[in-house]
Design a protein around this nucleic acid. Structure first.
Lengths: 132, 132
DNA sequence: GTTTTAATTGAGATATAATCTCATTAGTGA
DNA sequence: TCACTAATGAGATTATATCTCAATTAAAAC
């Protein structure tokens, strides 16, 4: 079960870091195939999961949207634009102790939480006035 | 575009209310087909979305899992057991003003948020000691 | 009650996201 | 250089959800 360093895994990691903004598996795949058309979709998915398990990147499962892969691994929150479906980082303190505010945990053991804000990003918002 | 009351829509609404605990579309479908084997899957999906739009039920999109349909329409938070994949209501005050804590919204207009706790439910937890 | 109408349905095709199978390829330790 | 087996590529498969379209049917009009 020793892991091997493969060209493909390096390409996937590189792509996630390069794309930065919470790329989907499909975006990573399309980005890689520009230069390396022979990589298989399954290989991209496999390595995204592997790199995620290894802690090199972080998988962010999104409500109502495809999984994203984040080059930033620390805990933080996200916002999704309902127009363009892009994911944005949210500038808010992480509430590590949030589960402790649950009044009656009923025997549930909590291991974490996700917060996803819904809204519309400035680029998609017709009412958005940029600061002048 | 006037809505009609159909037998099928009534069955879907009834099933969501009966199943209660955040049923998936598939669970609703399977529940209905026990007594009405002729209903189509597409009809179930269509009516779940319709009833959701009408405010009769509420669609809860889950990170990494199928959409759930909730007979409780008020804002509240959920927890997902990573073992059995069931969704539980969480007994915590709803933070309607949470988006206001975002330090730099960068022109984003927020319309809401979802919090989903991760963890293991007492039924799946081998370490769980029920209160004696 | 009958006719008209268009909203809704059923059946199956399609779309999307992700995983699995398996023969082949290629890292890596010996 | 060789042997071992992890990893890959290609495509099938699974899961979730939506779409198409002819047939049905709820409900308004007569």
């Amino acid at each position: 079960m020793n892991k091997r360093n493969t060209v493909q895994r390096a390409l996937v990691l590189e792509a996630v870091k390069e794309l930065q903004c919470h790329a989907t598996a499909d975006e990573v795949y399309r980005s890689i195939t520009k230069r390396h058309p022979d990589i298989a979709r399954a290989t991209v998915y496999r390595n995204l999961n592997l790199l995620s398990d290894m802690g090199e990147i972080r998988k962010r499962e999104m409500p109502g949207s495809a999984d994203r892969y984040d080059h930033l691994c620390h805990d933080h929150y996200h916002a999704r634009c309902f127009q363009c479906d892009r994911i944005f980082d949210v500038d808010m303190e992480f509430m590590a102790d949030l589960a402790q505010r649950i009044k009656d945990p009923r025997g549930f053991t909590f291991t974490g939480h996700d917060i996803v804000f819904r809204g519309i990003c400035p680029e998609c918002d017709p009412d958005h006035k940029p600061k002048s």
